[in-house]
Amino acid sequence: MIIPIRCASCGKPIAQLWGDYQRRTAQGESAKTVMDELGLVRYCCRAQFMGHVDLIDEIAKFKKG
């Protein structure tokens, strides 16, 4: 839906890094390099980014029931 504010496992704040990650991977940089440089060391935090799909743009078109 929307990137979690913190890593669900270790609690590190990660949402502020998502914009950078998205922009840089779209430009063709590898996810590994970007995450290393953003300081996402543990695999729990890396999993949050790798498994995330921004669905809020789609969902926002529909009314909340």
Binding site: I2, I3, I5, P13, A15, Q16, G19, I56, A60, K61
Partner: peptide, 28 residues
Amino acid sequence: YAEQLKSKDPAVIPVHGKTPLVKLLDNQ
């Protein structure tokens, strides 16, 4: 973004201002 939160105390503000809270469409 979290930086858009208006705090009554300038000493207590979000550490990471660029934390996305929600995404809004037109009219939301």
